[in-house]
Design a protein around this nucleic acid. Structure first.
Ligand code: NAD
Ligand code: NAD
Lengths: 226, 226
DNA sequence: GCTTATTCGTGAAAAATCTCACGTTATTTT
DNA sequence: AAAATAACGTGAGATTTTTCACGAATAAGC
């Protein structure tokens, strides 16, 4: 029964989960930058361009509760979200491909805030192997199994060119990787029990372009119709 | 009436739009790598881990149509998606912040595939200004208005540290930017008529961690219950 | 302390999205 | 040329998500 209960508590809409990430980012910033103690659903909504009802409904899936007139206690919400996202436990990840993007990731200081740590970075270019990226030495691919075992790595970020992404994925699957964080725009073919998250950055731009196009269509319509 | 019609054709679920981006990536790869002429909804579905019904429904919002037994003509679908996303018209964008991520973006060769081009990259570090990133020279912030005018820039990518993101956004808004592609994890406060797309890369990792956590919960439940 | 003004919390209704199931249609086979 | 088959297209139904509206609760003011 207690398992059932826990499951119940953790079950919320997928869409809510996505927004919880945004709340996490916003609350972090409210706490650190403004030292805010309480925040209103209305304020959160405005910053994230959603409705306050949506915010309250999302929070209703959590244990934290707000107070009329004051709103939600920032630190309390944040604690609960940290727990939910497991940002306290550190997950070791590896990066394959020490090019522009791989190096940027390896240098990123923010991983610790979300409970992650780059254990190692790999490349197949002999010129790069042995050189440093921040505090990490670029390792050859053959070291992947050793590092995975040593640091209990379950997640790998793929930062190699499109043309190599599938073969790298195959290799990682062979080594028993549990999740692939795919930065290439290649759609990968991997077994269903391996989690794949496509992080094709540039895809976001398509959305922006489309919105801009719609905007100008709307505008021209206004002009044309009246 | 023709405007009404056009509007009608272009109106489809937001969720469908998101998936259209994935179809675009997958179809591109099918055409270039495998020279595939036709593809089945079933095949697309498997690669993207959705249902074939979903694929067919999504395509039903487009003009392209499939043939029984053969499936959809890859080139035809791709043409239509290219048109929809406007990947033929080039949109000039600027990058603010020539750090790890800004440089990676500036060097990215894939922008032309989605109808974008980096017109310039800016930084406020005197040490960096004047140095080259690929074929672009890093420019001082004061040049932003000139470049925006010259290249009709509507979109800016913010690649500065969290602490500077808001002030950079304010500046860009002052210069009349239409859309901000925000790579910092700072939630920005900008007027509503300015489009903001948050591309906080690391957020994807939270989703992966959560799925991994759920997976192990499911597994332990199976063990505990039976 | 009592009143008032706010803001939360949440069922119920509405809207959006997804799934199902089957008729339709083009290809392939005989 | 007809029959068989495989896959599309789509309305109807199911499910999920969002919005609405209002009672409950509490801080602030009198
Ligand atoms: N740079 C960006 O801003 C950006 C944006 C969107 C998507 N991407 C995608 O991310 C990926 C990486 O981009 P990048 O700009 O860092 O590319 P890059 O060319 O700078 O780096 C690729 C690295 O991968 C290494 N590599 C190649 N084949 C390998 C293999 N089989 N095993 C291990 N390492 C291998 C190369 O030696 C190189 O160091 C690409 O797929 C790219 O399309 C990049
Ligand atoms: N590197 C990553 O993989 C990664 C991942 C996720 C998010 N981010 C975010 O992306 C942003 C950039 O990350 P980064 O790794 O490239 O950082 P970085 O420190 O390497 O680069 C930041 C650059 O911005 C410049 N800058 C600082 N203040 C500025 C200002 N006011 N105007 C113009 N330029 C200014 C700096 O001179 C520097 O060149 C950060 O907000 C970071 O949190 C980075």
């Amino acid at each position: 029964m207690s398992l059932e209960e826990r499951k119940e508590i953790l079950r919320f809409p997928k869409a809510t989960f996505e927004r919880l990430k945004s709340y996490h980012a916003l609350l972090t910033q409210l706490l650190l930058e403004e030292k805010r103690e309480y925040v209103l659903s209305e304020e959160i909504a405005e910053m994230l361009r959603i409705t306050p009802e949506q915010v309250r409904k999302d929070f209703s899936y959590l244990r934290s509760t707000g107070k009329p007139k004051l709103g939600y206690k920032v630190s309390e919400l944040l604690d609960e979200l940290d727990e939910l996202f497991g940002t306290r436990e550190t997950e070791n990840i590896i990066i394959i491909g020490a090019g522009h993007l791989g190096k940027a990731l390896a240098n990123y200081k923010g991983f610790k805030n979300i409970g992650a740590r780059v254990a190692a970075i790999f490349d197949n270019d002999p010129q790069k192997i042995g050189t440093m990226v921040g505090e990490l030495m670029i390792l050859p691919l053959k070291d992947i199994p050793r590092v995975m075992r040593r640091f209990r790595v379950r997640i790998a970020a793929i930062c190699v060119p499109e043309s190599a992404a599938q073969e790298v994925a195959d290799m990682l699957v062979g080594y028993g990787i549990r999740a692939i964080w795919n930065f290439s725009s290649r759609i990968l073919d991997v077994p269903n029990d391996v989690i794949v998250r496509n992080e094709d950055i540039t895809r976001g731009l398509l959305g922006i372009k489309h919105m801009l196009a719609q905007e100008s269509t709307e505008a021209s319509k206004q002009v044309e119709i009246r």
